[in-house]
């Protein structure tokens, strides 16, 4: 992916290629507690996957394993066929150096539940930081690109503000723009609306919907069942560190086969 090209004014997604995500038999445990218990998941390029399930079911951990914020003890994740955080060495998986892992993260956007914007930087600098820090763009170009992204999430007018001067919904929209700054092939959302007041949820979901329509691969951990139904191509239900059921929204949300799915949906709907 070459971002250092002169076509910055071209449409935003011009050189962003959606990427496939494959999770191969991932196990993760803390002591005796199994957080992920053999997860296999394939997300096709451009597909929008919603992961639902009760709290403590391992949804967020799975997301954090995908961009290697957490390392699994067994199994691995690959992005467009390339393992994340590890490489094959004589038939075994070997951990990459931190520098290599950081370089891979540029291909994976991550949006946190609590936004985690950098409070000491302006909105514009929050978005422009990654392209500058990784040497992909020089500062003026990065700022122009950041403005473009902020306009896209409807935050162009707040470029000079500091994050704490914004509402939760506005902060989350900036966080999405920041995650887009390196033109990732896949974006992971970890309960992006859970920390928001109910009336602010809509503006964030609208931005995610817009992203889904643009053809980027999205993996969204969410409690918004209605949103999952509307946006997702596929819904994955997790419980106890396992995927119990997956399929189209109509299959999983309207005719759940697994009794745990039925029980969960009856409680949240």
């Amino acid at each position: 992916m070459s971002v250092l090209n002169p076509e910055l004014d071209s449409p935003v997604d011009a050189d962003t290629v959606p990427v496939a995500v494959e999770v191969h038999d991932v196990h993760k445990w803390y002591g005796a507690h199994r957080v992920l218990d053999g997860i296999d998941l394939t997300v096709a390029p451009g597909e929008v996957t919603a992961i639902i399930g009760p709290s403590g079911s391992g949804k967020s951990t799975l997301l954090r394993v995908i961009n290697h914020l957490e390392q699994p003890q067994l199994g691995h994740v690959s992005l467009g066929g390339e393992p994340v955080g590890v490489r094959w060495h004589r038939g075994r998986l070997k951990e990459l150096s931190e520098r290599q892992i950081l370089a891979q993260r540029g291909r994976i956007g991550f949006v946190f539940q609590n936004f985690n914007l950098f409070p000491h930087l302006t909105v514009l600098d929050n978005v422009a930081a990654a392209p500058v820090a990784t040497g992909q763009l020089r500062k003026p170009e990065a700022q122009r690109w950041a403005r473009e992204l902020l306009d896209r999430v409807g935050m162009g007018e707040k470029a000079a503000a500091y994050p704490r001067q914004l509402s939760g919904g506005q902060q989350q929209r900036v966080a999405i723009a920041r995650a887009l700054a390196l033109r990732p092939g896949v974006i992971l959302f970890d309960e992006p609306t859970s920390a928001l007041d109910p009336e602010l949820v809509g503006e964030v979901l609208a931005v995610i919907k817009d992203l889904a329509a643009s053809g980027t691969t999205l993996v969204i951990v969410t409690h918004e069942i209605g949103f999952a139904r509307e946006v997702a191509d596929r819904v994955v239900f997790m419980d106890g560190g396992r995927i119990l059921e997956q399929g189209s929204p109509a299959e999983v949300l309207d005719q759940p086969r697994h009794p745990r799915t039925r029980e969960f949906l009856s409680r949240v709907l």
Binding site: L69, L102, Q104, R105, F110, F118, A133
Partner: peptide, 11 residues
């Protein structure tokens, strides 16, 4: 720390 790491910013 997590946000900085997730963005792939150099250490």
């Amino acid at each position: 720390h997590e946000a900085a790491a997730a963005l792939g910013l150099p250490r």
